[in-house]
């Protein structure tokens, strides 16, 4: 992969009890690019994604070996501030999960937790984050209304705004469009296109056309292994590995 790497893994292994879910994964995520992870269900793509901000720490009986670095720092090193790590590496999940609070409170929640108290600063962060998430124009007149009244697509963009509000460098997206209709999906995809200018995006998707549309680089995973990783155009036009070829042409998976 070309470009500066922001995250890289070296010989990363992960076990859920006996299950060897990630097997010797070594990859580099380029900065300010969109990297897609594709592969059949259970191949380990979400597990890999959750390694990047140590979300797997919250699951019992997980064992990890190997190295993950973010900005040249080993993220499992003793003394790593996991809260700070998750601030820098934000995450958007499959199903929109806004807090049962107002739109404003959803977005301002993160900065407040991180100590921002000044109302004007919070107002500015909320507006900027909603603008970045391409939601501001749709919600500016009902910013105090409950977030639960938004449509699914709007809720997902709100979750993205909530992630942006704490000033991350990397945004992890785990199937961010799988619960959305095609129009809402197109809006999120357009948003991803814009986000790459300022952020590094890593997206897990089962929709190969989506991976092809939105990403610069694609990694194909199968049974816990990273089979192939390269430029998206190359992966979808002439992949190097037969397994990748068979998967993306629908011969299995």
């Amino acid at each position: 992969m070309s470009g500066d790497g922001i995250i890289s893994t070296t010989d990363l292994n992960l076990w859920y009890r006996e299950k060897h879910a990630l097997q010797s994964v070594s990859m580099r995520i380029p900065k300010n690019k969109v990297t897609a992870l594709i592969g059949p269900s259970g191949c380990g793509k979400s597990t890999l994604l959750r390694c990047f901000n140590r979300l797997n720490d919250l699951i019992d009986h997980v064992k990890i070996t190997g190295k993950i670095t973010f900005d040249d720092h080993e993220i499992h090193a003793p003394g790593t501030d996991v809260v700070l790590l998750r601030k820098k590496i934000g995450m958007v999940f499959q199903k929109p999960n806004p807090f049962p609070k107002s739109i404003y409170e959803n977005v301002s929640y993160g900065p407040r937790v991180h100590g921002v108290r000044d109302r004007e600063t919070l107002d500015r962060i909320v507006e900027e984050s909603l603008r970045h998430a391409a939601l501001w124009d749709e919600v500016k007149d009902r910013i105090s209304d409950s977030a639960l009244g938004l449509s699914g697509g709007q809720q997902q963009r709100l979750c993205i705004a909530r992630t942006l509000a704490v000033g991350p460098e990397v945004i992890l997206m785990d199937e961010p469009c799988s619960a959305l209709d095609p129009i809402a999906t197109a809006k999120i995809e357009n948003l991803i296109e814009k986000l790459r200018e300022e952020y590094t995006v890593i997206i897990v998707t089962h929709n190969m056309q989506q991976a092809a549309r939105v990403s610069d680089y694609t990694g194909f995973m199968y049974l816990g292994k990273l089979i192939e990783c390269g430029k998206t155009v190359q992966i979808f036009e002439h992949p190097a590995e037969e397994l990748t070829e068979n998967y993306i042409t629908g011969r299995f998976g």
């Binding site: 190969m208 979808f236 002439h238 042409t249 629908g250």
Partner: peptide, 9 residues
């Protein structure tokens, strides 16, 4: 079908 890889080729 939006074919890919060899199917597209």
């Amino acid at each position: 079908y939006q074919p890919m890889a060899k199917d597209m080729r």
